[in-house]
């Protein structure tokens, strides 16, 4: 009994204290994974806020974006042009989704729109596979996957670049939504559709913009995951990892998506490395959901609840 107590509550912390450089490496690894979850969760939050649609297809949009980018590059298109083309494809996708999926279902129950996005998931997965093939592809956008050592801590250049890119992206989005007219229009649409319409805010335009932004966020997430572990269909499964992130951060909060993602990423890495061996490892895959469940018991509205909504 005492042995179990020691192994669970004392030994892991002794390990952490024993090798701080390794702890920092684990934390960095966790933050990087968390950032990826955050980026996917961010796409969810944007669409959910603007249209009340829980977009199940966000994960597949990440995959689809990465596949398109890799596919173009494999055909000899230079990185920058391929990137611009991929952005174009995501914007066209946003237009198509608004026209074909959202518009005919306007004023339907949320659950119906949710089911439509499940359909969209399967379509995009099949369509992507049909156009670009189902093989695992290596994505190399020119970011070196090298490491350097700072004070005994190994830091990966790719992860560092990813972190900076994500930080820039989030800052740009924050400015976009808080400082521009479209940001105010978006917040208005998120709050009350009819009132927004009566003030002359075109709902459809807002939807296209939001889905386009979510598509561009998906490209960034896709590049980072793809560069790290190859572009493959399991990429769409990270969407499921962003569900616990949303529970932690709240469905309507952009800062919540970021912070929630980082907490989940770090939490599962720590759990895997320090507590995993006690139960034979491989707890990384489900630990995030346990965290989310625990969170639901104590703060069901998420970290940032409803109060912060007006600031986003």
């Amino acid at each position: 009994m005492v042995g179990v107590f020691y192994a669970v509550l004392v030994a892991p912390f002794k390990d952490m204290a024993g090798s701080p450089a390794f702890l920092v490496e684990v934390l960095i690894g966790g933050l990087f994974a968390g950032l990826m979850y955050s980026l996917v969760a961010l796409g969810f939050v944007l669409i959910f806020k603007a249209s009340g649609v829980f977009n199940f297809a966000q994960g597949v949009m990440v995959l689809f974006a990465a596949l398109t980018l890799v596919g173009l590059m494999e055909r000899g298109v230079p990185v920058v042009i391929a990137l611009v083309l991929t952005m174009g494809v995501m914007v066209v996708l946003a237009f198509a989704i608004e026209r074909i999926v959202l518009r005919p279902l306007v004023n339907q129950e949320h659950i119906i729109l949710f089911m439509a996005t499940i359909g969209l998931t399967f379509f995009l997965e099949g369509f992507g596979e049909m156009v670009w093939g189902a093989n695992v592809k290596k994505l190399d956008v020119g970011i070196p996957d090298r490491s350097f050592i700072v004070r005994g801590v190994q830091i990966n250049e790719l992860e560092l670049t990813a972190a900076l890119t994500a930080a820039i992206l989030v800052t740009v989005l924050a400015v976009f939504f808080q400082r521009t007219r479209i940001g105010r229009a978006l917040r208005a649409v998120a709050d009350d559709h009819e009132a927004a319409l009566s003030l002359g805010i075109p709902l459809k335009t807002i939807w296209v913009i939001v889905w386009s932004v979510a598509g561009i966020v998906a490209i960034v997430a896709g590049i980072m995951w793809g560069a790290k572990s190859g572009v493959q269909f399991s990429l769409s499964l990270i969407a499921l990892k962003s569900l616990p992130v949303l529970i932690l951060g709240g469905f309507t909060s952009v800062p919540g998506a970021i912070v929630g993602g980082l907490i989940i990423g770090v939490g599962e890495k720590l759990a895997e490395v320090y507590w995993g061996p006690l139960v034979g490892g491989a707890i990384e895959n489900w630990f995030a959901y346990v965290m989310a469940l625990a969170f639901l018991l104590f703060r069901p509205q998420g970290l940032f609840g409803e109060r912060i909504i007006e600031r986003v």
């Binding site: 917040r187 208005a188 009350d192 002359g200 909504i309 007006e310």
Partner: peptide, 25 residues
């Protein structure tokens, strides 16, 4: 049908959106 999450001032400013000019971006 007010924007419930916004302040009174933000609500009224939103009513002004159509009068605002210039590029969104």
């Amino acid at each position: 049908a007010l924007f419930k999450g916004m302040s009174v001032l933000d609500n009224i400013m939103t009513g002004r959106l159509l009068k605002m000019r210039g590029s969104f971006v």
